[in-house]
Simulated scan of single mutants.
Amino acid sequence: MPSLHAACVALGDAGILIRGPSGSGKSSLAVLLAAEPDGVLVADDRVICERHADSLLARPHETLAGQVEIRGQGILSAADLGLTLRPDAVLHLVTDLVTDVPRLPEPPDDAEILGLRLPRLVLDRGVRRAGLATLLIRAALRKGKP
C-alpha cells in the first residue's frame, strides 16, 4: 500500500486528499477544513491509500495518527487543537497545492491513484492566501456529485 506525502480530511462523507510540496500549506489547509462543523481530520503528513473495488480508502500512517505538524509550532495533537478524528475516509477529491496557475486555466485533468481516477482541484498560493480554498473545495465536491 502506497504511503503518500499528503494530508487527508473529510467534509461529511467526502474524503479530500491534499497534496503539494513541503511547505505548501497542506497541514494548514487540512486543519482549517477539519475545524469546519462537518469536518474531520483523517491524516497529516503520510496518508496510506488502499483500493477497494472502485473507491480509494485513505487512512493515516500508524505512527502519525492523531498528530498534525504546524510549521513553526511542531507536532501537535489533533485533540489539543479541538479537531475530530476519523480512522479513514473514501476519497472524493484530490486537491493539489501549487505556487501559481494561469489566470484562466483549463480544467485540470483528473488525478490517478492506484489505477482510479478522481476529480482534481488545483489551488494556487494566491487563492489560498485570499481564504478561498475552503469555498472552492466545497464547490468542487458539489460539482462532482452525480
Rank of each mutant, 00 (worst) to 15 (best):
M1W: 06
P2D: 09
S3I: 14
H5W: 12
A6P: 01
C8H: 01
V9N: 04
A10G: 09
L11T: 10
L11S: 10
G12F: 07
A14S: 13
G15H: 00
I16R: 08
R19F: 03
R19K: 11
G20M: 13
P21K: 15
S22M: 12
S22T: 10
S24V: 13
G25C: 03
S27Y: 07
L29P: 00
L29F: 07
L33A: 09
A34H: 02
A35R: 09
A35F: 06
A35K: 11
A35Y: 04
P37C: 08
P37W: 05
D38G: 12
D38T: 15
V40T: 12
V40C: 15
A43H: 03
R46E: 04
V47A: 01
E50I: 05
H52V: 12
A53Q: 11
D54T: 09
S55C: 13
S55V: 11
L56A: 02
A58K: 00
H61E: 14
L64Y: 00
A65H: 07
V68S: 05
V68R: 03
G72S: 10
Q73K: 10
L76E: 09
A79Q: 12
D80T: 13
D80S: 14
L81A: 02
L83S: 06
L85D: 03
P87M: 08
D88G: 14
V90I: 13
L91N: 00
L91T: 01
H92P: 05
V94Q: 07
V94T: 08
D96Q: 14
L97E: 10
T99R: 14
R103M: 14
R103E: 15
P108W: 12
A111L: 11
A111W: 06
E112G: 03
L114V: 09
R117G: 12
R120D: 07
V122W: 03
L123P: 00
D124W: 00
R125T: 12
R125C: 05
R128Q: 10
R138Y: 02
A140V: 08
L141C: 09
R142P: 02
G144Q: 14
K145I: 14
P146F: 08
